[in-house]
């Protein structure tokens, strides 16, 4: 692809603006858009009631599913990705939830809790929690999610197994962040895991 042309067209366009810049007819402009899209130099947004916007870049766009795509599919308030995350291979809600926990970012953690309403493979979630040694954290977050939002029910066998892994020493999920709510504190005390959510965070999620 001609880099000079891409550099010249870089940015956001509508069909009309593209027609004006390239001096093409509408049909040719649409063909050109399809060609750029095929080569991954163009991304489409909008459509429907909104005007269709085409973003053109001299760099090829990367496509794929990742943690942020899954979180934002279920989140109440979508998060801005801290980095681009692309997965090659099998990756589901369970993996995204665990990866979100490991990032230790408050907003990502909060929005990832909505995934708990879409978990199908509890066994996989348990295995991943075990692998990363975060079983009590998963248990505590699940209990918090149960009082804040709608979630699926965790199998009793998994819950019992998580309970057995409660630590002796208090774990902080996000350093220096503590709750100010009695109900959340009781969950924190039960699991010996410091939950970072305040009463306002709980209300925001509902």
């Amino acid at each position: 692809m001609n880099q000079y042309l891409l550099k010249k067209l870089e940015g956001k366009h509508t069909v009309n603006s593209l027609m004006a810049v390239t001096h093409l007819t509408k049909a040719s402009a649409l063909n050109f858009i399809a060609h750029l899209k095929k080569l991954r130099y163009l991304k489409t947004s909008g459509g429907g009631r909104q005007k269709r916007i085409y973003t053109i870049s001299p760099k090829q766009f990367t496509e794929g599913t990742g943690m942020f795509t899954i979180i934002n599919a279920y989140a109440k308030n979508p998060v801005v990705p801290a980095f681009q995350h692309i997965v090659h291979g099998n990756y589901g809600s369970e993996n995204a939830f665990i990866d979100a926990l490991l990032l230790k970012d408050f907003r990502i953690l909060q929005q990832s809790l909505y995934i708990l309403n879409h978990i199908k493979k509890w066994k996989l979630l348990h295995a991943l929690a075990k692998k990363h040694n975060i079983e009590p954290i998963v248990g505590a977050l699940y209990d918090f999610a149960r009082i804040a939002i709608k979630t699926r029910r965790m199998p009793d066998t998994m819950r019992n197994s998580l309970i057995k892994k409660r630590p002796k020493k208090r774990i902080e999920i996000i350093p220096a962040l503590r709750t100010n709510d009695k109900e959340i504190k009781s969950i924190s005390d039960y699991w010996n895991v410091e939950l970072p959510f305040s009463i306002n965070d709980k209300e925001d999620m509902q």
Binding site: G66, Q84, H85, I86, V87, G89, N90, N95
Partner: peptide, 18 residues
């Protein structure tokens, strides 16, 4: 500052940070 993370998932995972 890494801008992207590519996970190659199989039995074990290869994480490539860009």
């Amino acid at each position: 500052r890494a801008v992207a993370r590519h996970d190659y998932v199989n039995a074990c995972t290869l994480l490539v940070y860009v």
